[in-house]
Design a protein around this nucleic acid. Structure first.
Length: 341
DNA sequence: CACGCGTGGTT
DNA sequence: TAACCAAGCGT
């Protein structure tokens, strides 16, 4: 009996009993609707980011900035520093732009429709649907990587990703109704995260196993089918740690666009060129070894060179302050140079 | 529409 | 350990 109604009631009953407790989530059936600001903030932080990694950032952000108006008033640099370590820094720039748009153009109130949310910076199809469903109880089709995987298995979809996304989204849409849309979206994502996992799915305890064509096929883990991925190139470069001898270190502000855009960084050579690199100023440079770092689309070996030196066109920061505000790749280099994150 | 864009945990 | 993976978005 794989009709929509029984599939829905099976999964919602499981969610009522087994929903994860998360700092941004109201318990199912509590009648409490989470503040749209918190739903939005959590959704942006969770884009391509695990719950354990995002959680401490969510807690510190909501403590420092309890409302969207408070967030909108923050300095750019302060916000980027607070985001350091969370990755995908365009999210932080868009987060601030979005908060300011809500504060200035919407009287501090989040739009309560999917279309209105979609118009905000950093809010795409997924986040608009998620906020509409979870914060405003709109029957939106919320499709993230979890939901794609659950649909691919439930309906044994053979079309490889990413081409198959259109079909998976259509299938997810057939299950959305006016009844408890926020809980439905979160139930699907919880199922994907804890039971219908990418590897070793727990089909024996799955509340919708009886509806699952992937399980019936005998190879549920085969879904979703994925296309070939491009190989990841390797690059090399040099990072210079310049100290002033009084506890400060030189950093630069990176351009707003591109890799680590808008963040502070250590002065570096270009990445990908040969090993011959000229040190930026005459000083007592010594080699502190190298660090390895893996970005989404390339890996990097960064040689770390250290000196006490003076330089122009840099910002001198207390070392502890720099350490906390630097993206991880540069924090690693600074640790290699003898600092502590 | 394919690509650029971080990081850390798991296998 | 190299590969894979995570509540995507903008261009």
């Amino acid at each position: 009996m794989t009709d929509v109604a029984s599939l829905r009631s099976d999964l919602l009953a499981w969610y009522d009993a087994r929903a994860r407790t998360l700092p941004w989530r109201a318990p199912p059936g509590s009648g409490v609707r989470t503040d749209p600001y918190r739903v939005w903030l959590s959704e942006v932080m969770l884009q391509q980011t695990t719950v354990p990694h995002a959680t401490p950032y969510f807690l510190s952000f909501t403590k420092r900035w309890p409302t969207v108006a408070a967030l909108a008033a923050v300095d750019d640099g302060e916000l980027m520093g607070a985001w350091a370590g969370l990755g995908y820094y365009a999210r932080a720039r868009n987060l601030l732009a979005c908060a300011r748009a809500v504060a200035n153009d919407h009287d501090g109130v989040f739009p309560d429709t999917e279309a209105g949310l979609l118009a905000l910076p950093g809010v795409g199809a997924y986040t608009a649907a998620a906020v509409a469903a979870i914060a405003f109880d709109r029957p939106a089709n919320v499709v993230d990587g979890n939901v794609e995987r659950v649909m691919a298995r439930l309906f044994a979809v053979d079309t490889p990703l990413p081409g198959g996304k259109v079909e998976l989204k259509r299938l997810a849409g057939t299950l959305v109704t006016d009844d408890r849309p926020g809980d439905w979206a979160q139930a699907l994502m919880d199922l994907g995260a804890t039971v219908c996992r990418p590897r070793s799915p727990l089909c024996l305890v799955c509340p919708v196993a009886r509806h699952c064509q992937g399980l019936a096929s005998g190879e549920p883990e085969r879904f979703p089918v994925k296309g070939a991925k491009a190989p990841r190139p390797h690059r090399t470069g040099v990072a210079w740690v310049m100290r002033d001898g009084q506890g400060r270190v030189a950093v630069v502000r990176r351009p707003d666009k591109g890799l680590l855009g808008g963040m502070i960084g250590l002065p570096t050579s270009d990445w990908g060129e040969g090993p011959e690199v000229t040190d930026p100023v005459v000083a007592d440079w010594r080699d502190a070894g190298a660090i390895e770092h893996v970005f989404t689309h390339f890996s990097l070996t960064l040689q770390v060179r250290v000196a006490t030196a003076a330089a122009k066109d840099v910002i001198w920061l207390e070392e502890a302050e720099a350490m906390s505000a630097l993206p991880t790749v540069f924090a690693k280099a600074l640790v290699r140079a003898g600092g502590e994150r």
